Amino acid sequence: MGADSLRGPQPLDLASIRRAPKALLHDHLDGGLRPATIISLAEACGYDKLPADDPVALGTWFRESAYSGSLVRYLETFAHTVAVMQTPDGLTRVARECVEDLADDGVVYAEIRFAPEQHLEAGLSLDEVVEHTLAGFAEGESAVAASGRTIRVVCLLTAMRHAARSLEIAELALRFRDRGVVGFDIAGAEAGYPPSRHLDAFEHMRANNARFTIHAGEAFGLPSIHEAIAFCGADRLGHGVRIIDDIDRTGSEPTLGRVANYVRDKRIPLELCPTSNVQTGAVESLAEHPFALLAELRFRVTVNTDNRLLGDTTMSNEMLELVNAFGYGWSDLERFTINAMKSAFIPFAERLRLIDHVIKPGFAVLIG
């Protein structure tokens, strides 16, 4: 695959890629706000700590802060977005606009994650936080449908790995599992907070036949990936980019270590986020991103945005960056999209319907 991939009659530019049906597995709700919305919500709730009061300047501040090369510094930017997502109106508006923005970019399926425990400062309960967010997703889906388009958006509930509420958030995810929440996740700084600290939450999810992903292999390296899959039983790996540390590239052919072999053999999906991985220092540059090698070795790679505001990115931008860096064609982008859809946490019949009736026909038009 790659440069020799089949090219269709449509040019592989941003406008054409936006028309392609896309599936997104790793996108943080609090990392994708519109700058103008942050300013508006800050005024409404009396938050006066924004670093800028102009949408353009604020967007620039977020991007520049995100390109620090430090995951810790990267995560600090969320203090501002989370601050304006403490009320019913704030949560609902952000969720609605998230759906609208993704649909405008051609996304047809998205799993959006956020940490309810971070939205309790105005007195909302955990259940209320989830209810208002899901209401926003539903409003967004309705608005998109009214415009003649379709998007399916579901939710992952995230627990913060430095806190001690993971079991409580797992239980919350199960309470809403038939109302739009399809899984569970842990996130936050990896160093010093191994996933095994939250083993009771993962065991509770497995005991109830529920799905979960784990942020691992982004900043801390291979040990976090090993724990996530061997001890915790993760269905997917959030990022997982450091799996490259278990692949020996010194010989004529890459040689996989035991962890890398297990991840590939078990078809454990990698939620790769190219722009974000560069921003946080997980990789030096997009040209050096292991995405291409992992795809060539047939790991189940998927393309994701992580935080659209911080990366000033969209799914279409992420795909175009991969096209420019590695020479991918339409058939490659279709494969990555189908990888994501196969790995989604919705039921098999829904996944198959989207693959057969939305994604494949949509790419067929572009491929020709």
Rank of each mutant, 00 (worst) to 15 (best):
R19N: 14
R19F: 04
A20P: 01
K22Y: 14
A23Y: 05
L24Q: 15
H26M: 12
D27N: 15
H28E: 09
H28R: 07
L29W: 02
L29P: 08
D30I: 02
D30H: 06
G31D: 01
G31R: 03
G32D: 10
G32W: 00
L33T: 01
L33A: 10
R34A: 13
P35W: 10
T37N: 05
T37A: 10
I38G: 08
I38V: 15
I39Q: 11
I39R: 00
S40P: 08
S40V: 07
S40N: 08
L41T: 08
A42L: 12
E43D: 13
E43F: 04
C45I: 15
G46N: 00
Y47S: 08
D48L: 10
L50I: 11
P51V: 01
P51D: 06
A52G: 08
D54W: 09
P55K: 15
V56W: 04
V56G: 01
L58S: 03
L58W: 06
L58Q: 03
G59E: 10
G59K: 00
G59Q: 05
T60H: 11
W61M: 02
W61A: 12
F62Q: 01
F62R: 06
S65I: 08
S65L: 07
A66T: 05
A66Y: 03
A66P: 06
Y67W: 15
S70L: 05
L71S: 06
R73N: 12
Y74E: 08
L75E: 05
E76M: 11
E76Y: 14
T77R: 00
F78S: 05
A79G: 04
T81N: 04
T81F: 06
V82Q: 03
V82G: 04
V82N: 05
A83Q: 09
A83V: 11
M85L: 02
Q86C: 03
Q86H: 10
Q86V: 10
T87I: 13
P88L: 11
G90M: 07
L91F: 09
L91H: 09
L91Y: 05
R93S: 03
A95L: 01
R96T: 13
E97F: 05
C98Y: 12
C98T: 13
V99Q: 02
V99A: 14
E100A: 14
D101W: 06
L102D: 04
L102F: 15
A103I: 11
D104F: 02
D104M: 08
D104W: 13
D105F: 06
D105T: 13
D105N: 11
G106E: 09
V107I: 14
V107K: 09
Y109F: 15
Y109A: 09
Y109K: 03
E111R: 02
I112R: 13
R113C: 03
R113V: 03
P116H: 13
P116W: 12
E117Y: 12
E117W: 13
